[in-house]
Design a protein around this nucleic acid. Structure first.
Lengths: 257, 257
DNA sequence: CGCGAATTTGATGTGCTTCAATCCACGTGG
DNA sequence: CCACGTGGATTGAAGCACATCAAATTCGCG
């Protein structure tokens, strides 16, 4: 258990270092950031809308959704976060959140006090810049979601989302052809701006067409090339380093069709 | 002309200072940032997808859209920028853009070299933090757009967008009941994930219902309260200071229904 | 074994798209 | 000052992707 949480911190730092130059000393300081472990049941909202936050949340295990709600109570998931993601890094610099957080499966969170992060950032311009940059990458992902929801069919939306998750999971060491996806179809529909019924029918068709399926809370990519084409997917917006992209693409297109 | 561009820089700094504490000296340094004026015709794309950028763009006049395109060529405008906005502040920290920029009307842009901005940020942690924070606010707006496009009807989407623009224009000193909106219905449709035909019909109905209309390239808000309700609008995500919100709301609900 | 949650399926409705004209405002040249 | 061209707004008709409602089935778990 303790091992697991340390691993999450390392994953987070590894990903920061993929995108920004961070010296070993700075990395060590980040690794020593104090945190508080918190286990959260599936389907629990653990940060409410408009709440004043004092901690940032690093996902150690499980899946977290950031969402907001219309007056009519309809949910829209605005971003999805896998282990190694700092869900609300932005809250370090903007405490009042304009969205809420929900655990989509049983999840363990590492809560880091804003002040501690700020302190490391204040000491090192390189760290400050790295954190700023990661916030910007999160924004790029959001932009891609706007495009996905605004201009793609249900089938393409789901395909695109699964492509994104394949790469993000690949970047933290999972098999991009077979990675955890504990969200329900209802939650997927909230992420794609669809209804759960339509997600069901569409996923079913993707599965029958031999492209992807989700079984046993895992995504299984059967035909990467088709999936990427149907999802109109390009890795650029994730801003992963070229060698990482190449390695993951290799695993996705490699042995066994 | 020169007056106009200086005013744009001031508007930008004013907005930064609305959200963050910036000392007078730091503000002066920002005001002295060197730039290059560039006039762009309506409908010109002036930053292409994936381009390596060396400058950030501050809008002095006109309207700019950040967008991306599907393989099929469908556009999705991901953010809209009015005078005083630094369209791609994020590019300071992430040079390779994963979206393109388009002038939606005749526009004048102030191009500021990344290095100059970075230098000011490096000298002052307060400035660095302010810029980071503004990037985060941009991301919050993006999140609201995801929600808007994913979960609201065409009528609500347009109403919400116009509410947002009323506040953003109000914050730079325009009359929030009557502000410039030079975009075509086609461009509005690209921003809302709709077709231009449907935007037309929907705007027409909003106008007939006496809520808002767009004439002579200006938005005219006739019934703010209804507009805000229909658009399911809450100012929170814009992260404007309470007194500014109050002042704009006052002008919107004040004299003449 | 039995309960509740999630998935799956069917039938029906509709908001938005698509395609195709037509209309209108505005700028431009004769 | 009018003819003309062009981009945008407007309107109509028809179709479809997705929503809605409702029920049945399967899965996971105590």
């Amino acid at each position: 258990m303790q091992f697991n949480t340390v691993m999450a911190v390392d994953r987070w730092i590894d990903r920061l270092r993929m995108r920004s130059q961070i010296g070993d000393e700075d990395a060590a300081r980040l690794r020593e950031l104090p945190y508080e472990v918190r286990m959260i049941d599936a389907n629990r909202d653990f940060v409410r809308l408009g709440e004043q936050t004092t901690h940032a949340c690093l996902v150690a295990d499980g899946l977290v959704g950031r969402f907001s709600q219309t007056a009519g109570g309809q949910r829209q998931i605005v971003s999805l976060h896998i282990p190694g993601d700092m869900v609300d890094l932005h809250s370090v610099v903007l405490q009042r959140s304009s969205s809420a957080l929900q655990a989509l499966s049983a999840t363990t969170i590492l809560r880091v006090v804003h002040g501690a992060v700020e302190e490391v950032a204040a000491r090192s311009p390189a760290v400050a810049r790295a954190l700023w940059r990661d916030c910007v990458v999160d924004a790029m992902v959001l932009g891609e979601w706007v495009q996905n929801i605004g201009r793609r069919s249900a089938r393409a939306r789901l395909a695109h989302l699964l492509c994104e998750l394949a790469f993000r999971n690949g970047a933290i060491g999972h098999d991009p052809r077979n990675f955890p996806m504990p969200a329900t179809q209802m939650q997927l529909s909230d992420a794609c701006g669809l209804t759960s019924v339509h997600v069901n029918r569409t996923m079913r068709r993707l599965s029958l067409d031999g492209i992807v399926d989700i079984t046993a809370r895992h995504v299984h990519v059967h035909d990467w090339r088709t999936l990427a084409v149907e999802g109109d997917f390009d890795t650029g917006y994730l801003h992963l380093p070229a060698p990482v992209v190449a390695a993951i693409t290799g695993r996705l297109t490699g042995a066994a069709g």
